[in-house]
Each structure stands twice: as C-alpha cells, then as structure tokens.
Nucleic acid binder design. Structure first.
Lengths: 335, 335
DNA sequence: TTGTAAGCGTTATCAA
DNA sequence: TTGATAACGCTTACAA
C-alpha cells in the first residue's frame, strides 16, 4: 500500500529514473513510445510525485501560509474562504495559523511558515503588533508577502484593505443625516491601522456637517470580553450619545446588547450603525444598519496578488495597496 | 540570507555533518565539548532543522489535515479553532481544506493531504458524501483518521460528535412543554448522520408526550440559498405548524426570516428553537432559543484523539465514538 | 534517446 | 568519539 515512486516505475519498465522523470515532465529528448509506456504505467499504478521530495529539491512547497488573529470570526473566516478559493484553483495549499492577537505568537507562526518553506505569506496583523521586524525579515529572505485588512504603516508591503475611511465616512454621515449630533465611536485598539482610518472617516463626516469633534465620544476597546460593556455603560452615563458607530462585529454586538440591557430604546434614543460582517444584522431587534467589509473579496484579491508575485507575474519590489470599497446596508425597523 | 544547514555548521567547525547532527539530537556518543561547540554555533547562527528534509527522511510531516464543508460557518470555524489550539500545543501544523459540500472535492482534498504526507486527517463529511471509499483507502494506508460531527455509518472510524439525539429531544420537548403540538422540523439533507440522529430525538420527544409523528412536518433542505425559504413558505401554507425546530445556523436564520416575512408572529403563532452556533441568538427579534453544539470542544476532542493515535498513545484499530453533550439556551422575549 | 551521478538537508549504519 | 556513506524521491547536468 506504499506510494509508488519513480524508482518503482523505472524498475518495472527497465528504465532509468531519469528517463522516467523526463517522460513524466518534458516531452522533448524522449522517445514517444517510451514516454507513452511510462505514462500508461504511471496512470495504471496511480503514480503521484512526492511533493515533499519536490519541495526539498526546488526549495518551494506549493503552499502559502495565512496568519489571522482568529479564525472563528466572520470577517477572517470569509477572507480565508476567498483565499482558499484562489489557492485551490491555482494548485496551492493553504496553511492557516492564528496569532490570537499576540505578537509573540505571530512571530512564532512566521518562523514555522518560513521553516516549512511556504512560497508566500498572507497576514492580517495581531492587535498587539507594533514591531514588524519579523515581517521585514521574511521580506529580506525574499518570501513574497501580502498584508490584508490589518496593515501597518511601519512596513512597505503589498496590501489589500477595505476602504475604511470611506465606510466610516458613510456610516457617520448616515447618522448625521438622520438627525444625530452626538455620535459616539466605539472602536478597536488605537494602534491598528484600520482604527486610524476609520477615525479619520468619522472625523471627516463630522467636519463636513459642521459638528465639532469631541474626543470623549471616541472609545478604544481591547479584545477582552467584558471591556466593551463597561465602556458602553460609562459612555451612556457620561456622554449620553444619541448614536453609536461601532468598528467590528464584536463591538457592534456587545454595544447593542449593553444599550438594550440599560433599557435604552434603539434607535429612538440611540441609533446604531456598525462595521460588521454579521449575516444576521437584518434579523436583530431592531434591524442593524451595517457597513460591510467585503471579506471574501479581500481574501481573493490578496491571494491573487500573492500568487502573482510568487509566480513572478508581479515584481516582488513593486509594492502597492489595493482598496476594496465597503458596502453600506441601511435598515430601519419598518423593513 | 539563506537558511543555515548542518553542512554549514560542519564546515565552519571542521566537523562532519554526522557529528553535527548527533550533537544537535542525541547526547550520547559525542564529546561534550564538541556538542557544546555545535550547540553554541547553532544558537548563534539561528540554525533550525529543515522540516522538509525531515519529512522526506522520516515520511511524516508534523502536520495534520482538516477537511470541512465550509470554513465560513460558525460551527466549523469554532471547531477549527479547537483543533488548532491542540495542534499548536503539541507542535503540529494544521492544513485546512474545504469540500464545499462536494464529494468530488473531498476526494481530491484527501489525495492532496495524503500526497503531502500529513500525519493524520480530521474530517467532517460533505453533505453529498455517501461513498466513503476515499476514507477507507487512507485507513488502509495506515493514516490515522478522526471524523467529527458529520460522520457516516458506512465506515468504522474514530468519531467525535455532539449528542444530537439528546439535543433534538430537549429542543422538541421544550416546544411541547410550552404547549405546542404541531412541531415542524426543518433539517439538513437526509443522508447526513446528524440529520438522522436529530430526527430520532425529535420523534422520541413526540412519542414520550403522546404526539403522533407526522412526516409531512419534516422537511429536508439542501444547501442552496433560496431552498429553505421556499420550503418554509410551503410549510406555513399547508401544514400550518405552531412551532419550528431547525437543524443549523443557516436553516434557523432562513426560517426565521421567512416566517417574519410572512407577517407571522414569533413566538405567539410559531415558536422557534434551533440547533445553532450563532452568537447573536439572544439579540434577535424575538430572542431565539437554541441548542448549541460545543464546536470548540468537539474540535479539541477530535484533535486530541487524532494526535494520540498518531503518537501511538492510542491504537489505530481501537475505534471509538465520543459524544459531547449539547447545551440548551432557552430565551423568551421578556429577557 | 537514454543512463549515470550529484544534489536538496537530514539521519542511520557502519567503519575507523 | 568521529567520519564516510547511503538513503528518503526527485530533477538535471553531463556523459554515453
């Protein structure tokens, strides 16, 4: 039941391994009949080249590594879906790791992937990552790299992100146009690039409509489960906003739940809109308006960019950033 | 910037590769000083053994393969999370594939994984898989295998599943105890093992409470997006149930949305409970009672079982099935 | 057109 | 205690 090798074929057909190898790969420098013989035998015995031997020889693995903060997250699992779709079509494997929002773990993941000789790396940075030397190292080693969604301005790399500025602008403007003036922004840790971009979009919308920016209305939340709830309660007590713009699935749901728990009416007293990839936003009570990051599309695009770089269709040094538009879904209680 | 190898160390220290190798692995048959020298140099140059060369030599990869129908699914992404947690702790990599509910794709995934010499496979069957010969083949090859959640009775293998019977029983009984008599069951394709078990639980609860089983109240839904909606509309028109018990996230949401779209009051006219891993069930309008499959736990358990088999802590032939209890969350509009 | 041999990085066997 | 050599499966100069 052991897998058949080129040696076995060679022995069976009284040929040398190199002849068999040639028959299997090239078409030139080989007698068509020999070739036919080999191919038939290979077919019959269900021969498949050993990818590990190939990796060792060619120093590549036909695999790409993916590092995300968490798999069990709508955005990331959808992005992985997009990545996998492209990789599969182009004959690559996907090796997935989670950083669990830990920079230490992220470094270790990178080490593993490099050791495994992956042909390229797709990464969305952990919420903790400020030092990006581990990424610079793999760039120096010539390993193609694409950063998606959670990018960093500390490193020059190919990037794919949602248009966070635009999404945040639209979300905020939507709240303003529906008559809100005191719009809170509950968002992710301040060092994330996406956080900054969204804040800019939020500010730009306020400015456009002549509403002064009040930094007490902006709250940064870590990834601890109870944190958002505390922040919201405090916010509701002190700043008393008439609208909340949240930056992620988790923040949207935690805020939503916290506001309801306080017995505050949504959207009469506090209107909501969130950056989320929830698929049930329209079924919530009341339905939640959302700004959606096209996760699948982001994954797809990032994977394509990476594979193009790997296959030298794109220069490894020509760094660029692709922005994918967000989608706004406005929902009212009536529909 | 190329990775350093044993050869490099040997050359630098004027030793043979075998001595270096020994210094790095064994402690015996080696001069402590030589060993120290090698280890120091290895440390200094940041030497890491090439896992690909090791794989080729030892015919194993320190990687496990995971095949799930879809990654972008709460249940599966949480299960993968559990798998990854265990694998990481025990020094294994996780290679993930999706079958996209296609048996063909599943076979191809298995081929890839076997080719890659993964040390074991974790799989949750596609909704289409009836012929399990591809699984039997890898068993014959001696590749450790654990099937989780979507198992099959056509193959003897290690399995980890939720207690679907118990969960379905509790769900149905809950509806009965709240006064419902005409309880519909919207469920997955009939050939899934989980579907059968849930149906049994449903029937058992009806029987216990003297309600005759009516097969017109049971509807099997494929994975097409619009299918559930159609089924629900028809069901509402013809059978007019006073309660619905659904079998998955998707079916719960689609049914929920369809019933609301019909302008039917939940739960007054139709009560709901679903087998889901939604994290927002309590925020829906009205809150949705759920039977939760402990996805993370299932993944964790399956991965542990697999790694124990791989590392020979468990015989590969001693096949067993582990059932993980489900959790029931009852929710009413008032809380 | 085909075969021989070296090499990818490592370990195991045997000899020194 | 150390070193030379073969082997894992494959490709590719180079030789025949």
């Amino acid at each position: 039941m052991e897998a058949i090798t080129i040696k076995d074929i060679a022995k069976a057909l009284n040929l040398s391994t190199s002849t068999v190898s040639r028959a299997l790969r090239n078409s030139y420098e080989i007698n068509p009949e020999t070739k036919k013989l080999v191919l038939e035998y290979a077919e019959k015995t269900n021969y498949h080249p050993n990818p590990i031997a190939l990796s060792l020889k060619e120093n590549r693995s036909k695999a790409i590594g993916v590092i995300v903060p968490e798999i069990a997250n709508n955005f990331f699992s959808q992005a992985i879906n997009g990545i996998e779709a492209v990789a599969y079509n182009r004959g690559y494997h996907v090796v997935i790791f989670q950083s669990h929002e830990s920079c230490e773990r992220e470094r270790s993941n990178i080490q593993h992937l490099v050791g495994r000789k992956v042909d390229g790396v797709l990464i969305s940075l952990s919420g903790e990552t400020t030092d990006v030397s581990h990424l610079q190292e793999i760039q120096n080693k010539g390993v193609p790299l694409v950063i998606f969604d959670r990018i960093s301005n500390k490193i020059e790399a190919n990037e794919v992100i949602a248009d966070n500025f635009q999404g945040a602008f639209q979300a905020t403007e939507h709240l303003i146009l529906s008559g809100r003036k005191k719009i809170a922004h509950i968002t992710s840790p301040s060092l994330l690039y996406t956080t900054k971009e969204r804040l800019e979009g939020y500010k730009a919308a306020l400015e456009k409509h002549g509403i002064p920016f009040d930094e007490d209305l902006v709250h940064y939340c870590g990834f601890a489960p109870e944190e958002a709830r505390q922040v919201i309660f405090e916010l509701l007590d002190k700043q008393k906003p008439d609208a909340i713009f949240t930056a992620s699935d988790r923040l949207a749901l935690d805020s939503f739940a916290a506001v309801k728990a306080k017995g505050i009416n949504i959207p009469e007293q506090v209107a909501f809109i969130g950056f989320t990839n929830l698929q049930v936003a329209h079924l919530l009570d009341p339905p939640l308006s959302t700004v959606v990051q096209p996760a699948f599309e982001i994954g797809r695009t990032a994977a394509e960019m990476l594979l193009n770089t790997i296959e030298n269709k794109q220069s490894i040094t020509a760094v660029k950033t692709i922005k994918i538009p967000t989608e706004v879904n406005l929902r009212t209680s009536s529909n």
